[in-house]
Amino acid sequence: MEKHDLNNEQEAYLAQWMEGALSDEELAGYIPEEEIAFYKKLRLGTEVLRSPGEDIFLGIQQKINNKREVQLSRKSNLKWAIAAAASLVLFLTSYFFLGNDTIAITTSFSEQRNIELLDNSEVTLNAKTQLSYDEGEWEHHREVHLDGEAYFKVEKGSTFAVITDQGTVEVLGTQFNVKSTLDFFEVTCYEGKVQVSKDGEARILFPGMTYRRINGHPIENGRSTHKQPSWIHGESTFKSVPLTYVIAELENQYSLKFDTKAIDGNVNFTGSFGHDNEEVALSTVFNAMRIEYSYNDQKVIVLRPYE
């Protein structure tokens, strides 16, 4: 190495070339061709040595997402028809204005509602759900409070948080479903990456992952190959969910009241019911569980195990 290199302010051409500030041709003004060949080889070598980072990992997530979308688009178009029908059931919604800028949106029995938030993020509320947020604070905190069940399509940007009594769900541009009722908490990630946290403990969900907690007990991840929650398409789907919660969902979707004293609500139910035919929905759930149902005079449905 020549001494004057160290003292000359201008001697940084290799560094400038490495960062792309100098072209190959410009570099050729300083050093001969075979030297350039060496540095190119060195540049490639360090690229190979570099550990794959976040960008590569995000690419993997993207590929996982794309594959699932392809699989889903092969399935019938029927779902779209049902989705269009479901989106018509959007009436009785009421807006409540609480305090200064707090906006609360509530859905009633058998009602779903699409709303657009201030940043164009979309939320679909399932029946018997309340979502509230502070319009004034929105620019600083994208934060919503949820009681019930909702499906979120979040615009990219700063952190977006869904706060429930049972934990906080945080995301950066993604699609996910949160269901939080008194003692049932379930989050499913459909796209991107979601973090679920409660009392300082956090876990990350990838597309297709479900995190569920019933009565405070976390349950290992389930997996889903669906692109959206089934209720968006007018169907409630359950995978090993205690019957109590299935019955609660029937109440929400059909505005019913059940008498469950005679049955065991802890038995798990796997299956689904549609939102368009009460009789079919009742027989689907209760025949499978070997439970009889009959209306009493107060319009309450009494449940009894088969004789």
Partner: peptide
């Protein structure tokens, strides 16, 4: 920084 980088590359050479 550029100077150190330049030197690093020369040293590696």
């Amino acid at each position: 920084v550029e100077k150190r980088m330049h030197l690093a590359l020369k040293t590696l050479r």
